[in-house]
Amino acid sequence: MPQLIINGIIMGSIIVLGSIGLTLTYGILNFANFAHGDIMAAGAYLCLFFLGLNVPFVVAVILSMCITAGLGILIDWCIYRKLREKTSVVLLIASIGAALFLRNVVQLIFGPQLVYYSSEIQMAKKLPFGIRIKPDEIFIIAASFLLIIAVHLFLKRSRIGKAMRALSDNMQLAGVIGIETEKIIFWTWGLGCALAAAGGIFLGLEVQLRPMMGWDVLLPIFAAVILGGIGSPYGAMAGGMIIGISQEVSTAFINPAYKSVVSFMILILVLLIKPSGIFGKKERLA
């Protein structure tokens, strides 16, 4: 069991990194960005590209995060921005289009096969309680923890960070008090997609890279966002950990092939019992 909880924390960290950006853009722009998973995949493959150039891993991660941030901003600028006046269904469909586009570009460049960042076999370290953990996994947990702390400080302390939370609460009021909302939206895409890239890379490190990897992780990410309350970054952090841990722990009782059913069930339960989520104030669905 302790092993499953550790595995859950690893998956939870990845889900949290993916869900912070999704919940912020969902809260602010009021639409479910189905391309968010494929943004994660794009980040993961960018990292693969940089590793191919013999760039050190940490540098490759940072470069990929920056470029993915730019990619997110670009997608918003070219596609979503023009559709803001339309209903959220139009945006939702546009995001599915963006998702398909990204996935096909990735597949075109890198091919459909499974890839690993490294072909080395890592020895798992033995810890008390029979826990075995690979150095990569320690890196994933530590790096995610640092990123989450950084996001927390940014959202709580910085002027732009506070404005992001304000926009997610009440976009109209933000405009009324003089916040240039488009600027804040721009930063929000950047932040959200940079974190998504980190999540995608860590997913690639833990499992492997596939063009479909982002799409497959979208369900637990949406479950985390809705469980935490749409628009609440702190809710996404809690929700992501809960989903990650329950998925892994469930494998003690059910066939691991069905573990994604767990996020689906949590998602349905939240929608039935408390649609606004743990920290949510709004009840919204795409």
Partner: peptide, 15 residues
Amino acid sequence: NNIFPSLTIKENLDM
């Protein structure tokens, strides 16, 4: 809808 409910009083004034 003239305040930001999930921000603190101080953060609302900052905004």
